[in-house]
């Protein structure tokens, strides 16, 4: 169990005045059996008069708001207080053969798996392609127990891929990430999701945070001081397991969960449609403090 105080500030600087802007935010941490969001505050400068909070199709909290006044700078800040009780699953114990999972997911009569099946199909950012299937099949062959297969897959990300913020952009397709073997957390998460889907296994995209400054003696994780992304894979009989390919980790209470969706587009922390503005400069500042109890 770990408690965190999170501050997340996004600042947009526009070249020309923006006359109207509309935004959607997935910033409020989830409350689930693994985690409790104890407090949350969202503010923006200039202020908005029409902030609406809702739960989206996937059960995440979404905020919608607009700024109806000309502005050249917009600052959106969220502060939250979250208690995370999640424990890391032990992959070695999960011995279901991959082939069996594939079969269950492909069986139209398994309506008990509907919640997982919505994360089984192609999206624009996580396509199912032969190349991705070939990559996945290296680990996920029919007889292979899924736990060790996933562990091997995570290991492969650590060994064969390099974290490189310069190599990709938000729009870089996962196939290119696979070819270049470089990218950031979002690329690795989406690549692993796409590979799993291409092999008939359901996986979803997770957006959230990890601890900024690790406890003494522990290594500082990649993705701190920014928002982080990983994935969750569904194993019939076991449920969802969160995996962080960027850090070769099975997630536990170091990861703060904000939203789950099919890919980045479903849950991007802040998105908007602005009128005017021209070029924009975006600055993101995130701090995650563990709270001593």
């Amino acid at each position: 169990m770990q408690t965190y105080r999170i501050q997340h500030r996004t600042t947009y600087e526009y070249r020309y005045p923006v006359t109207i802007s509309h935004h959607a935010a997935h910033l409020k941490p989830l409350t689930s059996h693994e985690q409790t969001c104890q407090s949350f505050r969202l503010s923006m400068t200039p202020d908005s008069s029409d902030l609406v909070e809702r739960r989206d199709y996937f059960g995440n909290t979404t905020h919608l708001f607009s700024i109806q006044r000309a502005h050249q700078t917009l600052e959106v800040e969220s502060r939250s207080h979250v208690e995370v009780a999640a424990q890391a699953a032990n992959l070695a114990e999960i011995a279901t053969p991959c082939g069996e999972i594939r079969q269950a997911m492909a069986d139209p009569s398994r309506t008990d798996l509907l919640d997982a099946k919505q994360f089984l199909y192609t999206t624009e950012l996580t396509p199912t392609l032969p190349e991705l299937q070939a990559f996945g099949q290296r680990f996920l062959s029919d007889e292979q127990p899924v736990g060790s297969a996933l562990a091997a897959m995570l290991q492969a990300f650590r060994e064969e891929f390099e974290f490189d913020p310069e190599a990709t952009e938000i729009s870089t397709p996962v196939l290119e990430v696979l070819e270049k073997r470089r990218g950031v957390c979002q690329d690795f998460a989406q690549l692993m999701i796409a590979a799993l889907k291409s092999c008939g296994i359901a996986a979803c995209y997770a957006s959230g945070y990890i601890l900024t400054n690790p406890p003494p003696g522990q290594e500082r994780l990649i993705g701190a001081d920014a928002s982080h992304a990983w994935l969750s894979v569904h194993i019939p009989g076991h449920g969802w397991i969160d995996l962080d390919p960027t850090n070769n980790l099975v997630c536990s209470d170091q990861h703060i969960r904000v939203a789950y969706g099919r890919d980045y587009d479903d849950v991007s922390m802040l998105s908007g449609a602005v009128t005017g503005g021209g070029e924009q400069d975006i600055k993101v500042e995130v701090t995650v403090h563990p709270v001593e109890i």
Binding site: P108, S109, T111, L114, K117, L120, Y121
Partner: peptide
Amino acid sequence: QNGQIDPFLVF
């Protein structure tokens, strides 16, 4: 939920 339509056709 009743399995009358393949989830692929919706999702």
